[in-house]
Structures are given as structure tokens and as C-alpha cells.
Design a protein around this nucleic acid. Structure first.
Lengths: 202, 202
DNA sequence: TTTTGGTTACACAGACCTGTGTACTTAGGC
DNA sequence: GCCTAAGTACACAGGTCTGTGTAACCAAAA
């Protein structure tokens, strides 16, 4: 039973293949037969591990929902590094947008399960930004976190249609301006000198 | 021959229905039978006006590609008004993201025709921003236009999954900061007073 | 050796899809 | 009244999809 040729579990092998095909070609474009064939198993086996294609789709999205690892770098650096990593992913030829946004776009508004996990993912990223900003002592961390998230998703959408990694750099530059405006030192030019953010004792 | 009950041409009636169904429920989710039934015509008639579903999809996207009307309002106002109109569209219950991004996400990277028109649309919007910024005398109009486009697409993507019109307001606030940073007067707080932008004679 | 659990091969039901073929109707232009 | 153009009704070919049913197989455990 222990598969000598494959160290991973069967479920994981299926998911790995489903991930590749769903993400690169689209959920609706890929049938379960295609996935089973690519894994090298029978369709029956696939259905023994996942009760339906919907369940497989859900598992695919859950698996894509990887939480950010904690880092000991300065928060401002972490925030900006997000955009660098984005640019690297854009440059890779196997990047095809945000799997959650794509799933919602493909499956339509009726699919509540998919929408739910997509919302959870987007919110988790916004919260991550917010927490880094709070560490930096930014007053309006909530609002700024939302704005940063817009830049991330905007560059992803733009790269999806234009295949232009420069979108990530543009987003980073915009993020720097927003951070500077909130009083965060992001290197390069000096930070905006308060005016209303560093709040003089009133 | 002149249809007394319908002032529009048959082609336009088909396109109108296709637009509604494709946009709200997805291109892959809607079959030509559904469209014909909704228009109240036979499938044969539909195929007499469009040679294939692909042609209908192309026509649908072309029809969505509406160019911005010229306006005599100040450019800065025009730019910010973009985000107000976005917020209004988010609030409407029949908003479901950007049809071009959705089409690329749904149809996959292989569909060159769809991707081509999506790219053209995105570029046309970037150019529109750039031209307004040039009118304002902004030096780095190209770069700033790209950043504004990121905010637009980011808020659209976010609203698609979260159904939150506040995303448009967040984008507008971020846009104001970026514009102010570029020396554009957008009302409210004073523009960033130089320090590194108005470059003191060095 | 026998049992057992996961797997395979393969057929198939039932649904839906795109696109075509065909014969019939309808209504205006001449 | 007749012709033509457009539309209708409807069947159907040929494909894809999800999901199930069934019998055989194989390897390890008992």
C-alpha cells in the first residue's frame, strides 16, 4: 500500500496535479478525466479520494491559501518585499493571476463556497498589511492596508492581461509614496515630515 | 421586415442579451441556446447573425469597449470622478468585475483574440489617465498613470470578491495622495510642499 | 492461503454544449 | 398574386462533461 514510487500520499498527488491544471488552464477548462490521466490513475481512484469535482476545487483553493511566514525583518521592509516577490512571480511564465479572483470570475457569483474562501484569503492579506503597519505605529493602519491591497490586486490583474512584470514595480513605487505619506521611512527620499500625521501635542 | 415590436436591429437585441448573460453569469456558463431563448428567437436565427459563439464573444467584448467621452471639467476633477463612478457601479447589484479581466480569466491564455482586446482596453484607460496628467503638467505622467490604473483594477478585483463599494473610496484616497505627491492640487490638505519634489537648486 | 483494501480498465447513463440541416411560415416589395 | 428574405420549429450529429457501476487485479496482512 505504501507507494514506493511516490513518497507523497495519493491525495496530495491528485491535488498537486489539479493545482497545476486548474491554475494554468482554468477550472472550467479542465475535466476530472484530464486530471486523472495526468496523475496516471483511473478516474475511479480520483473519485475515491474526492467525492465530487466541487470538493476537489475547494481543496485546490484551500491548498493555495498559504499563510505568510513570520519574519524578523523590519515591517517596512517586509511590506515592500511583498512587491518584489510579486515581480518575481510575474516574471515566471507560469503565473496566471490570483487563483481566488480567477475562481470567482470563472465560477460566478452563485458559488458561495468559492466566494467564501476567496474573501477569507483577501482579508487575511489585508490583515497582514495592517499588522505590519501597526508595528510601525501608523495611525490609519486599516485604511492604508486596504490601499496597499488594492495595489497588489491591481498589479496582478494588470499582469494577467498584459504579462508585464513592470506592474509590480509600479505598485511598489506607489506603495512607497503612500507609506511615506503616512510617516513611514522607506529609504531613499526623506519621509513626509508629519504636517498632520506625527500630530504635534495639541 | 422592419420589426414593429422592436426598434433595435436583431443583431443589437442579441448582443444586448448576450452582454447581460455573459457578464453576469460568465461566458462559459452561458450557452447559445440560453441566449436565443432569452431573446425569444430560434438558435438558427442567432447563428444567422453570428457565425460562431467565439464571434459573439468577440462582439460582446468590442461592445463593452466604450471610449471615454471628452469632458471640459478640469483634468484633476475628471481623474477623481473616475473613482466616484466606480463606486456607483460597485454599489449596483449587477456589477461583476471587469469583463475583460473576467474573460481572460475564464477563457485562458490560449485565446489570443480575447487577450488582444483586453490589452487594448487596459491600455486605452492608462493612456486616458496619462493624457489628463499631461494636461496638468505632471512630469512623470506615464508612471503615475500606470499607478492610477493599478488602483482602478485593484478596487475592481477587490469588489468582485468582497462586494464592498468602499474599495472605490479607498482607491480614491490613495489616488489623491499620489496626485498630491506629484504636485497636483486635489483640494483638501495642501499639496506636498516640495522637500524633494520641487527640487531645491542643488 | 485466504482475505482485504486500494487500484485499474472500461462501459455507460444523463446532461449539456456547439453547430448544422431541413422543411415550414410569414410579411413586405414588386 | 408571386417572389424573396428573414425567421421558426425541430431534429440531430458529434463532442464533452460529471459521476457511477462492475468485474478483474494485485499486494500486503492475517
Amino acid at each position: 500500500m505504501a507507494p514506493p514510487t511516490h513518497p507523497q500520499t495519493m491525495k496530495e498527488r491528485i491535488l498537486e496535479t489539479a493545482d497545476k491544471l486548474f491554475y494554468l488552464q482554468g477550472i472550467r477548462a479542465i475535466g476530472v478525466d484530464t486530471i486523472a490521466a495526468e496523475v496516471g490513475i483511473s478516474k475511479r481512484t480520483l473519485y475515491n479520494h474526492f467525492p465530487s469535482k466541487d470538493a476537489l476545487i475547494a481543496a485546490y483553493l484551500e491548498r493555495r491559501f498559504v499563510h505568510a511566514r513570520p519574519s524578523d525583518k523590519p515591517p517596512a521592509e517586509q511590506i515592500l518585499a511583498t512587491f518584489d516577490s510579486l515581480e518575481r512571480r510575474f516574471a515566471a511564465k507560469d503565473f496566471r493571476g490570483c487563483p481566488f479572483v480567477n475562481a470567482v470570475a470563472e465560477l460566478g457569483p452563485a458559488d458561495r463556497a468559492v466566494k467564501k474562501i476567496a474573501i477569507a484569503f483577501k482579508e487575511s492579506r489585508r490583515v497582514w498589511f495592517r499588522d505590519r503597519l501597526s508595528e510601525l505605529g501608523v495611525a490609519e493602519a486599516e485604511a492604508l492596508a486596504t490601499q496597499l491591497v488594492l495595489l497588489v490586486d491591481g498589479s496582478i490583474a494588470q499582469d494577467l492581461v498584459r504579462d508585464d512584470p513592470a506592474m509590480a514595480r509600479a505598485a511598489k513605487e506607489a506603495a512607497k509614496v503612500l507609506l511615506r505619506n503616512a510617516g513611514v521611512d522607506v529609504g531613499g527620499a526623506a519621509a513626509v515630515p508629519a504636517k498632520q500625521d506625527k500630530r504635534p501635542p495639541h
